[in-house]
Simulated scan of single mutants.
Amino acid sequence: MARAATAAASCAPRLLRAALLLLLLVAATRHAAGAPVVSELRCQCLQTVQGIHLKNIQSVKVTPAGSHCAQTEVIATLKNGQETCLNPEAPMVKKMIEKMLKKGSAN
């Protein structure tokens, strides 16, 4: 019986380390699954759409080209919470950005 207790006691630190490692992995995965982080040094938009109906858009974020990405990125957050990358060269997207800029400068 004493031998079984000793074996269980020696496994405890390994189990504790394994549990801690699992907890850290879960926390890191949850962070990675969230919204894109602007400080990442890569483009957020791998594919773009030409446009989306304005009534479906909740907000728009425009990220100018820079060291993180060579192209301007336009990310629309839809009313259902989904994020969609818009083509910044599409005429509809250009008009939307112009309206946003005019609205922002008027305030």
Score class of each variant (00 low, 15 high):
32 A>P: 03
33 A>R: 08
33 A>Q: 13
33 A>Y: 05
33 A>D: 14
34 G>Q: 09
36 P>A: 01
36 P>L: 03
36 P>V: 01
37 V>F: 04
39 S>I: 06
39 S>A: 07
41 L>S: 00
42 R>K: 14
42 R>V: 11
42 R>L: 11
45 C>I: 06
47 Q>H: 02
49 V>H: 01
49 V>F: 02
49 V>D: 03
49 V>G: 04
50 Q>H: 03
51 G>L: 02
52 I>C: 00
53 H>W: 00
53 H>Q: 10
54 L>D: 15
55 K>T: 10
55 K>C: 04
56 N>K: 11
56 N>C: 08
56 N>F: 05
57 I>D: 12
58 Q>C: 09
58 Q>P: 03
59 S>P: 01
59 S>I: 04
60 V>L: 10
61 K>C: 05
61 K>M: 11
62 V>P: 10
63 T>L: 14
63 T>K: 13
64 P>K: 10
65 A>D: 12
67 S>P: 08
68 H>P: 07
68 H>I: 08
68 H>A: 15
69 C>V: 15
69 C>E: 15
70 A>H: 12
70 A>F: 14
70 A>G: 15
72 T>Q: 15
72 T>L: 13
72 T>N: 14
73 E>L: 08
74 V>S: 13
74 V>Q: 12
74 V>T: 14
75 I>H: 06
76 A>L: 11
79 K>G: 09
79 K>D: 09
79 K>S: 09
79 K>P: 13
79 K>T: 15
80 N>A: 05
81 G>K: 08
82 Q>L: 07
82 Q>P: 03
82 Q>R: 01
82 Q>K: 03
83 E>W: 01
85 C>I: 00
85 C>N: 06
86 L>A: 10
87 N>D: 15
87 N>P: 01
88 P>S: 12
89 E>V: 08
89 E>N: 14
90 A>R: 02
91 P>E: 06
92 M>G: 03
94 K>C: 11
95 K>C: 01
96 M>Q: 10
97 I>P: 01
97 I>V: 12
98 E>T: 08
101 L>G: 00
101 L>E: 13
